[in-house]
Simulated assay, not measured.
Amino acid sequence: MLGKQTVDTLKRLASEGPQVVSALSWSDDGAKVVAVPADAADARVDLADLDRFSATLRELAVTCHAAPMVPDVRAWLSDHAAATIRALGFLEEPLAVWELEASERIAQLRSSPPHRDESEVTYWEVVLHCADQPSATLARYRWAPGMPERERVEYPATFALIGRMAAALERALTCEA
Rank of each mutant, 00 (worst) to 15 (best):
S111G: 05
W98F: 15
L138F: 14
A102P: 14
A48W: 02
G30Q: 13
Q5E: 15
T137A: 08
A87K: 05
T122N: 06
V20C: 12
W143D: 11
E99P: 00
F90C: 06
L77T: 04
L13K: 04
T6E: 07
S22F: 10
R44I: 09
E154N: 15
R12G: 05
L109E: 06
W124M: 13
F53V: 06
E99R: 14
E93H: 02
R74M: 10
L50M: 14
R52T: 09
R58G: 13
L109C: 02
R150M: 14
L100D: 03
V62M: 06
A55F: 11
A172P: 07
Y155K: 03
Y155L: 09
A35Y: 03
I162K: 01
D51S: 09
P114C: 15
A35M: 12
D39F: 09
T174V: 05
D42K: 09
H129D: 03
T63N: 05
S25P: 02
D132T: 14
A35K: 14
S111P: 05
S22G: 11
E59V: 03
G3P: 07
H115I: 11
A81W: 06
C64G: 00
M1G: 07
A131P: 00
A144I: 06
L24G: 07
L91R: 02
L10G: 08
E101N: 12
V45W: 03
C64M: 08
S54Y: 01
A102Y: 05
A167L: 12
W98D: 14
L91H: 01
A166I: 10
